[in-house]
Design a binder for these strands. Structure first.
Length: 423
RNA sequence: GGAGGAAUGGCAGAGUGGUCGAAUGCGGCAGUCUUGAAAACUGUUGAGGGUCACACCUCCGGGGGUUCGAAUCCCUCUUCCUCCGCCA
């Protein structure tokens, strides 16, 4: 969440930045400011009452020690009113604090200055494009047809055992998937990201830490008997490793990578756009996460973008990079670059990575701080990106690498698959 | 699943009702010594709220209670450890 102090000191600047998201944040900011004032006023009054109570208790203690029991007992009679006052003020304080926190949760992150204003995907800005789009024959098939033709992904089988959006990968399809995971992890660790294996279920506190809760509760699968959620991305468990941490400046940077399955309810959309691998309820993803000093975070973001570029370059997939506009950017991000692979048979771009800087937005919820050179505690910056999300990369490979003989395997993956053709 | 024990500052670890926000050690920071570094020695060092700055307030796993007063007593939840049982 945004820092209260920043809202207090720079209200107009924050409202202006938020307007890029195509929302009018002024009413929310006003509410926060009002609750903040109320909270502090109550706190001041409560503090005064507590100070009086503490002084009185101390005095009673000393009187008992010196044997002046009578006087002590007399003072005790004065405490009743104080207790009552502190109780009611304490209740008001916790109510106000909770309301303030809830109001803060409703305000999204302020977009970085480079983020274009806009309401949806049509306002995103293409900043980079690379790779050749292959020319396919007239008989070129979309990936779901190819999957069926070569019997490597079975969507109906997934429907049978679970439901729509839970495909079963078979034979060379399964092997190719595993190859991609290994390849991505190897490339990421080679670039300095430490490999982690993390839980696929997280508790409520973790959901709040990275911002999935409270606003996106409906997008996560939730367990019935335990207060746990299936992770929608490795970002949640990995970033929450650093919840309630006070770092030293020398600990920067922290760089991690993790492969996990991701679970998303994604209710709503139907039709060709969600066909095949385009949108799933369960999919595999290799994620990279960084925790950075505020002064380094944008440099780190560029580094992550460059790294993801090399992956796509090596896979020889045509892709482009978009700088998301305010309206299309996630709730918690300050700046996001989306990577899209061109799916030749479908003739459309598919998002395969999203690389974001959250600045202090997550860190504030996480209480992820570090001690700066003046020994003051400051919030760190968190970043993450997909490197990469598997299903659409797979879709891109299947469609772009299809030939009359079968589907070729990108050269860099052959050592991982052990075969160079799916036929 | 049964029986016990424990949770304290960045870390380790004392503290069983009244100047305890908390000894001590490590770590961090500053200094002395040194050409420099290490070692040694000296000093300093929890977080949050609040204030121009003080004052003041909160925090000893979470929540609740007893008391004029709780790190310390009671209840409850969570987590960890030891022993027994079961099991991949």
């Amino acid at each position: 969440m945004l820092q209260l102090q920043a809202i207090r000191e720079n209200t107009p600047a924050i409202a202006k930045a938020l307007s890029k998201r195509n929302i009018d944040a002024q009413p929310l900011l006003d509410k926060v400011l009002q609750l903040d004032e109320e909270r502090r006023a109550t706190q001041t009054r409560l503090d005064a009452v507590l100070a009086e109570s503490n002084a009185l208790s101390k005095e009673i203690g000393m009187l008992y020690k010196s044997g002046e029991t009578e006087e002590a007992n007399r003072l005790k009679t004065q405490t009743a009113q104080i207790k009552e006052d502190s109780k009611t003020l304490g209740e008001t304080l916790s109510d106000t604090s909770r309301a303030l926190e809830e109001a803060l949760y409703l305000i999204p992150n302020t977009p970085h200055e480079s983020v274009p204003k806009g309401s949806g995907s049509e306002d995103n800005e293409e900043v980079f494009r690379e790779g050749e789009i292959p020319v396919l024959g007239k008989d070129a098939l979309p990936h779901w047809e190819l999957a069926k033709k070569y019997d490597i992904i079975d969507f109906e089988l997934g429907v049978k055992i679970t439901g729509a959006g839970f495909p079963v990968y078979k034979g060379k399809g399964a092997r190719l998937q595993r190859a991609l995971i290994s390849y991505f992890l190897d490339r990421n660790t080679g670039a300095g990201y430490q490999e982690l294996q993390v839980p696929h279920l997280v508790n409520e506190a973790s959901g709040y830490g990275t911002g999935q809760l409270p606003d996106k509760e409906g997008q996560m699968y939730q367990l019935k008997e335990d207060a746990l959620y299936l992770i929608p991305t490795a970002e949640v468990p990995v970033t929450n490793l650093f919840r309630d941490i006070l770092m030293e400046k020398k600990d920067f940077p922290l760089r991690y990578t993790a492969y996990t399955p991701c679970f998303r309810r994604e209710a709503g959309s139907y039709g060709a756009h969600v066909r095949g691998l385009n949108r799933l309820h369960q999919f595999d993803k290799v994620e990279i996460v960084r925790v950075e000093h505020p002064q380094q975070s944008y440099q780190a973001l560029e580094g992550m973008v460059e790294h993801v570029k090399t992956l796509l370059r090596e896979l020889k997939l045509p892709y482009r990079i978009l700088r998301l506009c305010g309206g299309d950017m996630g709730f918690t991000a300050a700046l996001t670059y989306d990577f899209e692979v061109y799916s030749t048979a479908q003739e459309r771009w598919l998002e395969i990575s999203s690389v974001s800087n959250f600045e202090t937005y997550q860190a504030n919820r996480l209480k992820l701080r570090f001690r700066d050179e003046h020994k003051k505690t400051q919030l760190a910056h968190t970043l993450n990106g997909s490197a990469l999300a598997l299903p659409r990369v797979l879709a891109g490979i299947l469609e772009n690498y299809q030939t009359s003989k079968g589907i070729l395997i990108p050269e860099v993956l052959v050592p991982y698959t052990g075969f160079d053709l799916i036929d």
